[in-house]
Structure formats: C-alpha cells, structure tokens
Design a protein around this nucleic acid. Structure first.
Lengths: 211, 211, 211, 211
DNA sequence: CATGAATGAGGGTTCATTCAT
DNA sequence: TATGAATGAACCCTCATTCAT
C-alpha cells in the first residue's frame, strides 16, 4: 500500500528517507484527510473506522496508533477548521484603513469561497451536529464557534462604521446569521450541484446595508 | 372491517375499549412521534429501531407491523412535515387583498413560529441530510421541498409587489435563503436553548425590502 | 382475494353457495398446495408461514385455523404423498397374471413419471431431510417409507420371479436403491432442466435383470 | 510477516506458544469443521452463524474475521470436498495397466468408503441443495460437479473397456447415476445408522457390467 | 509504529406463533 | 372461520475498540 523506495539495501541512501516522525506524520495526515472526506460524504455516524483506515490504506490498528478514538479525529478536524477560518477572516480584516468598497469586495471574495467548497460547509454542519450531541465535544466547539463569530462580527461592524450606518442588530448576531445562511444553503445543495450561495449571501448583505 | 358491534357484552364499562383500528392507529402514532423525537435528538443514523420501539413501549416487531422499514417512518414524517408547512403558509397567503402591513405581520408570526420549535427545523435538517444520502428518499424530498419553496416564494413576491418594489433576486431564491437561514440558526441552537431566530430572520427580511 | 359470487342479496340463490365446510376445505387445500410448491422450491426451512399464507391469498391467522403449526402441513403433505405413491404402485401391481413384458412396460411408465415430476422427488427429499431432523416427524415418515419400499419391493420380486431369475439382493433393498436413484437424480437436476432420469433408471434395472 | 523472533524472552517455556498465523489458521479450521458438522446435521439453512461460532468457541465477529459471510464457509467446504473426492478417484484411476479384477476391487473400496461416511454424502446433498437455490453458488458447484462426474465416468469407461463390453449408457451418465445412488441412500440413512450402501452400489454396478 | 484477529454489543430485519377482534 | 397487529427470539452482519504479535 505505502509507496516504498526501490533501493533499501544501500544503507546511506542519497534519497532522503522519511524519518520515523515524518512517516508517522504522513500516516496521520492521510487518515485525517480521508476521515474528513468520509465525514462530509456520509456523516460522522455514517462513517466507520474501518472505512477510514482502509480507504487511507492502513489497518485499523494504525488509526488507534494515531488517535484515541473516533471522536479524536473529529476534534482534530475541528481544530484545523478553526485555523483555516481564522486565516480566511484575517484576509478580510487586514489593515484597518480600508475603504468600504474594498471591504465589500473582500466579503464578496469570502462569499465566493463558500460557493466552491460545499465540503467546507458540510464539515461545519457535521461539527455542529456532533457538538449538539456530545457534551465533551460541545465545549471545544463553542470556543471555536464564538471566536469565529466575533471575528466575522468585527468585520461587519467595521463595514457599517465605514458607511456611517447603524447595524440593524448586534454585529455578532448578524455574523451568526450569515454563517447560518451559508450552512443552510450548503444543506440544500446536498450532493454538490452548483448553486448561487455566494451571490445570494451578498444579496442579503446589501439588504442589511440598505436598511 | 366492521366498525364495531353495537352491544358490548358488559353494558356500563368505565374503560372505553379501543377498537382494533383505533388501537393500531395509536400504536402507529406513538411510534411516529417517538421516532420524530429521537431523530431530532440523535439524528436519523444515530437512532435505532430498538430505541424507537422500546421508548414507544412496543417490541421491534410491532414497528415492522406498522412500517416497511426504518426509512418508511422518515418518509411518513416528511409527509406530515410537508402538510404542516403547507398549512402554515396557507395562513400567510390567505386572501389577496391584504395590506403590506398585514403581510409583514403574518411573516412576523411565521418567523416567530420558527423560534419556538427548534425541533421543527432540526427535523427539516435531518430530512435534508438523509435526502443527500438516500437517492430513493431524495426523490420524495425534492418534491416536497420544491413545492414549499415555491409557496414561500409566492408570499415573498406578493409582498414586494404590494410595496411596489422589485425583489433583488428571484423570489424562489429568496425563499430558499430564508429557509436556509432558519435551518442554519437551528443548527446553532443545538439542543434547544432560547434564541432570537425569528427576530433575526425579520431583520434580514426588512433589509431585502429596503434594497 | 377469494372469488365471491355476484349476487349475495337474494337469499335462496340458485348458484350453490359454498357451505362453511366446503369453504374451509378450499382454504385448507389452497394452503397445502401453496406450501408444497414453496417447500419444493425453497426447502422446508427456507419457507416462511407468511410466504405460504400470503401466496395462497390468506392471512397468517387462517393458516393457524387450519393447521397446528408449520410441521403440521408437512405431515399432511407426507400423508398425501404416501397415498399418491400407493396409487401409483397399485397400477404396477395390478392383476397378478401379467407377462414380464407387461410388467417391464409398467415399470417403464413408472420411471417415466419420475422424469416429468422433478417436484415430486424434491418433496420426497424434503420429507426425508426433515425426518432426519425431527424425531416426531421421523416416526410418521418411517411408517410411510417402509410401506412404500415393501410395495415396490413386491413388484420387483414379482418381476424376477416371472423371469425365472434370482434377485441379486433382497427385493426391499433393491427397491430402496431405485428410490435412492430417483431422488439422487432429482437432486442433480436442481432447478428443473429436462433430464433422462427415467431412462437411466431403466438402464440400471435392465442391468439387474441381466445379472 | 516475520516468521518469528528468534529468542523468546522466557527460555524454557513448556507451553509452545502459537504464532499469530498458526493461531488464526486454527481458528479458521475450527470454524470450518464446526460448520461442516452443523450443516450436515441441521442443513445449511438450519444452521446459524451463532451456532457455528459458539460451538467452535468463538464470537460471531471471529467468524467474520475469517469468512466473508455464511455462504463463504460453504464455498470453502465445497473446495475441500472437491479436493478430497479428486484424491479419492485418483486412487482408482492409478496406472492404466490394471486388470479388471483390480479395478473392481478399487471400486469396491470406493463404495465401502461411502458406507462409513454418511456425513460425507450429506454434505454433498447440502451442497447440491444450496446450488439449486443460490445462483452464485451454483456456478462454483457446477464446475466441481462436472469435473467429478467426468473423472468417475473415466473410471467406469476404463472398466468396461477392459472387460471388452459396451457401456449401456454414456459413462458420464452412469457416473451421475452412481453418485445419485450414493446420495439417495445417504438420504435414507438419515442420522447415520449403519447400512449396506456400498454393497448395494456394487450390486447395481455388477448388473451394468452384465448387460 | 503498525498489524489485523478477535471481542461484545448492537445494527436492521424476519420468524413462528398468539390472541383480541 | 379468519384477521393481522403484536410479541420475543433469532436471523446475518457491522461496529468501535482491544491486544498479542
């Protein structure tokens, strides 16, 4: 299964062999990515460890060498999801001295992202669903969620400020609304047919700005 | 077949015996309601027939006397969901000669409904998720979904028409957006903690009307 | 399901209504025949009461109104099988004053019967298998079997006597051998493809006569 | 993968530990043998995986670690049955330069074998029955069956050739007849009471040779 | 670190049988 | 007599997890 280099007999190979840590990291990485795909496709409950391990090309035991259990992978995915979202919003916040046009363009780009990645939103949904069912997981999830909502809320607040308008609701609530919109639309997509989620989100955003 | 024999042998029975049909209908109803609660709480995949039957107070076999299988209950729930939603929207459409204020008040009432019933939206979400995974179920689901979307779209179109404004997107799309918003917000609530979903939805609606 | 006569309102109908007994007998008959077909096709263990009742056009309860249980139908089939086989052999035995040619022709006709009716032998096999597993059933079965074997043995003995030859083994054993041959060949047919069972049986018979 | 590490830590262990492969092979073997016994005793359909696993001393899961499903064990038994039968006939064919007496003696020995092993024939019967009901299995079965029939047919043809006689039917058909005889007689034995199957088969064989 | 056989619990479903109607 | 909802046990199979190798 694992691609092996062809010449193992020569001891000090010029091709840099993977160190033990590197090799393990790769195993871990493959398991995580496979798990992500399967969770998105079949849901957390609908995905078995056997499936993950086999599709990643490893044994079930390998899974347990890298994770404490099934929920542990989901936690790892949550952590990464959080980081990626933070990075995404960092691009929107950027430097403070921005024109409203620049900010709207930034949000447009952000909304467009949601378009392409149905998977992204589906993972969010799986995480939320599991948080609603596993108290242990919920604790971690809430931390991530509140941080993300506050960040997006900050962007929205800045936008209204720049335009000299008063937000029609607390920025955090508006942020939650936009996330909800994105997730709900992803749910409607189901399998992955192209849809105008991004455009629709902007329609709603322009509406709020016009209030 | 026969409705009931006219003269029960014991004349003044305090306990009104249930006829066979009534008894079966009750069994069916209890199973459906129990299934709904469990699907909402644990998801479709996370709910076992054993759970449903036991919690409803019956054997597993009783389930199969009333339904063809696990998916059949979900289909029944979908059917009822559809009917209830149609009824709900019928109240909004009503007679055509309505003032915009009346229509907005109606929508406000509708949005408020979403507030109370986190379960309601969670069931919608489970139905959508399962539709994305079971092609058989998807067919049924799409029928219901498109009908509901068109109905809500009609209400929205009427509202814009009365106000002499042009919708910023196709009414069907806006309808899909509001449903998405409602579902996404329900997802955030998780277990059922009180939240201002209805209010937030109206904020978004007023925004669109102001565009 | 049950074909009903068209004019029930006129009390003294010219069309002879089935009496209660006749109606029940018909139900019984249909259940037995359906059971026979299914036992032959799917085996005793592979046939469910639901299947029998439904395919016969009745409820499961109707089955229990006519038989004590699943094994009871098999017993009834055994009884009928015995009668039919006795009848069949009676034709061979017939009057005693027969020429060897006539007897051989009779046996040939008998062997030809086995050809057409793969079902017949398959039922024999199911009966034998069940006798080997249910001691209660075995008792009944052995009675039938020994009687049938003795009858066929008598025919064989008569045949050898007429030809002035000594059978190479006890006539009963030879009879058992021919039954075994017929059953074993039916087993090979499996689904029901035409085969030369009857011809092969005669080949073996002529061999014995030539010893 | 590695056969075994060379130096077990405890030097003089009285109990010879089984390697992983040995241990698994033993599990597999026990399951197969238990399955064989139960299939013979209760039939394929009458034997449950629970029974097999429990009687072999393992969990049901252990069964699925060794076989894809219930039919897979039967296939394995078929494979072994085939091999054993091939081996048996190989002894009969042997070298071509044999006297008819030697060949008859060989066949006598073969027929005697059928005597002892009622189980053997009962397994054959179960295999045939299942082949008649499972198309997937039938394919495998037909291959084995035709091969075996041809082999036995070859022996029979050689016997007639040596005796300078013409077989009264195609050797393959005669072979099928003898197999049918053996199976049918096993069916009569039921549980395993001693009987003269082998002797009876030889009576029939001598008959054919005398035609 | 990685293997995968084995576990024990539980999954959806079917069974022969009962019994109030 | 005939119904069929309901039972409780059993069916084949999959699950997350363990542990000797």
């Amino acid at each position: 299964m694992k691609p092996s280099t062809a010449v193992p007999s020569i001891p000090s190979s010029a091709v840099p062999r993977l160190s033990r840590e590197q090799s393990q990291a790769r195993t871990r990485e493959r398991l995580i990515e496979t798990a992500r795909q399967l969770f998105v496709a079949n849901g957390y409950g609908g995905t078995s460890l056997r499936d993950i391990a086999e599709q990643a090309g490893y044994s079930q035991g390998a899974f347990y060498s890298n994770f404490a259990g099934k929920e542990a992978v989901l936690l790892e995915l949550l952590r990464r999801h959080m980081e990626a979202e933070a990075l995404q919003l960092a691009g929107l916040t950027g430097d403070d001295g921005r024109s409203p046009e620049q900010m709207l363009a930034g949000l447009e780009a952000w909304a467009a992202t949601l378009n392409h990645d149905a998977d992204w939103a589906m993972l969010s949904i799986e995480l939320q669903l599991h948080a609603g069912r596993s108290p242990v997981f919920a604790v971690e999830y809430q931390r991530v969620w509140q941080r993300h909502r506050a960040a997006l809320g900050g962007v929205i607040a800045a936008l209204f400020r720049q335009l000299g308008r008063t937000p029609p609701a607390a920025p955090d609530e508006l942020a939650a609304g936009f996330m909800a919109l994105a997730h709900g639309l992803a749910l409607q997509r189901g399998a992955g047919r192209p849809d105008p989620s991004g455009r629709l989100i902007l329609v709603f955003l322009r509406g709020l700005l016009a209030t």
